[in-house]
Design a protein around this nucleic acid. Structure first.
Lengths: 117, 117
DNA sequence: TTCCGTTATATCTTAGAGGGAATAACGATT
DNA sequence: AATCGTTATTCCCTCTAAGATATAACGGAA
């Protein structure tokens, strides 16, 4: 191994996600989308900031709500500013958990990378 | 968190790979393919066993050889049985390393899953 | 020389993911 | 009532990854 990786040309990487109903539904993408929805108060604006179509963003949100069972994103149509969206307390908890998980994963990867030196 | 996952409906999963030239090139798929090439002595038969087209298998092998620099798969055309392929010692080393890495990753995931109980 | 199964490669087709545009519904404010 | 920006939903277009297909080259064995 050491002879293979000694040049430092290779590195270990990976990704983590949460599954429900046997399929992946929560990872870096949805996390970023939820945070941007919280920040902007709008699925539409969040999608724009991610360079993603509204349709795609809505599909993610819909899927998220469906799989979790309780609404991750609370939407409102009409009204003062035409409507808007916020994220639920459960969504915040899920984000926080995922981020801490990811941090532990990052450290795991770091340890593994050091084994390649 | 505990209240979200207490039903046991969700689980954490992930994947690991090795990058070279900034792009992912080695993961579960290539590992299985290499092992089957070693077992069958043929890219063609290995691909069939994986339910994968020969083209796709050959692209993986080609990419593998290209990025690593030295040949992971040694091929021969013509001859007694029409040709065939074997894997190099470096390939065996890379497989072994990836599998040990994956085992450590599995334990990491196991620990994480226990945190959800 | 002919046969065989493989590697090597190009080309055509197909399935799925995603973007874009269009439209309706909504409800507070004016 | 009219306006506004958003959510919600549909339809069509495009791009890409992948499969399927076809063909050449190869070289030992018969």
């Amino acid at each position: 191994m050491r002879d293979l990786f000694s040049k430092g040309a290779f590195r270990v990487n990976g990704s983590l996600w949460i599954e429900g109903d046997g399929t992946r539904f929560f990872g870096p993408g949805p996390v970023e989308l939820l945070l941007l929805i919280e920040e902007t108060g709008s699925i539409n604006q969040a999608a724009k900031k991610m360079g993603m179509s509204y349709k795609k963003a809505w599909e993610i949100v819909s899927r998220l709500n469906e799989i979790v069972g309780s609404p991750m994103v609370i939407t409102a149509t009409g009204g003062e500013k035409g409507g808007g969206s916020t994220i639920s307390e459960e969504a915040r908890q899920l984000i926080e958990y995922y981020q801490s998980l990811r941090e532990r994963f990052r450290k795991f990867m770091e340890q593994e990378s050091q084994k390649l030196q």
